[in-house]
Amino acid sequence: MSTRIAAIAVATFKEALRDRLLVLVVVFAVAMVLFSRVLGWLSVEDEVKMVHDFSLTGMSFLSLFLAMLVGASSLAREVERRTVYTVLTRTGTRTEFILGKFVGLVGVFWLCLLGAGLVLALWVLTWGGSIGEALVAAMIGLMLEAIVLTAVALFLGALAAPAIASVGTFAFYLIGHGTEALRELTDQGKNPDFAAVYSVLYRVLPNLENVNFINATTSGRPVDWGALGAGALYVLCWTSVLLAGAIILFRRRQF
């Protein structure tokens, strides 16, 4: 089974690498990393801080756009090109197909993130900054975020048309990054009724802030590796749910 998943993953990886959208998105991310220095020049001080902040945010958008543009349409494209029939009529099962697609897409997204991260590291070193553990933690957080976004894109791709899956992935990203701030807002007690409802919603809604360590990169605060580890487990939980959902939906699908 693992051999068949690996074969599908490799095929997905190679196919995604040939996608022009991927090149476009990666160029955007690298351009954002390089352009961040210009923003640093506009600032009073904090040149390296600007490079860190805007580059890491750019890389977070890179994950999002990859999931929206490449991940969400991945299943539909296989159906459209009829390559899915070739795989499924041979020895592969639908579960293996989804898992293989997931592994392949995560591999490509990680490769893009690592490439952009390498450019960022060189860029930071060029301008007199240093690569600290906070930057490493932020990168790991972004890679974990890419996992869950890929799972969301596949789940929604199995459920609906690519355009709707893209929009849904985008909505998941916004909700995931807004959950924590909304909790802070409701904690202030300005609206007790909503606070009571939200205290329940808070536990149910996805929370990508659990793996967002970008804000800590420039503040100089120590990295809470335990929190990052717990965040990784949290990502694992959501990914398991979403992949299981994608598999169930894909099994029921009539071609």
């Binding site: 945010t57 977070s60 990054h177």
Partner: peptide, 24 residues
């Protein structure tokens, strides 16, 4: 500030930079 925190969608530090650069 409360609204901005929510609308930053997790990228607080970057949004702070952006507002700062816009204000300078």
């Amino acid at each position: 500030p409360d609204v901005t925190r929510v609308l930053s969608f997790g990228h607080r530090s970057t949004l702070a930079d952006a507002i700062w650069l816009r204000a300078l």
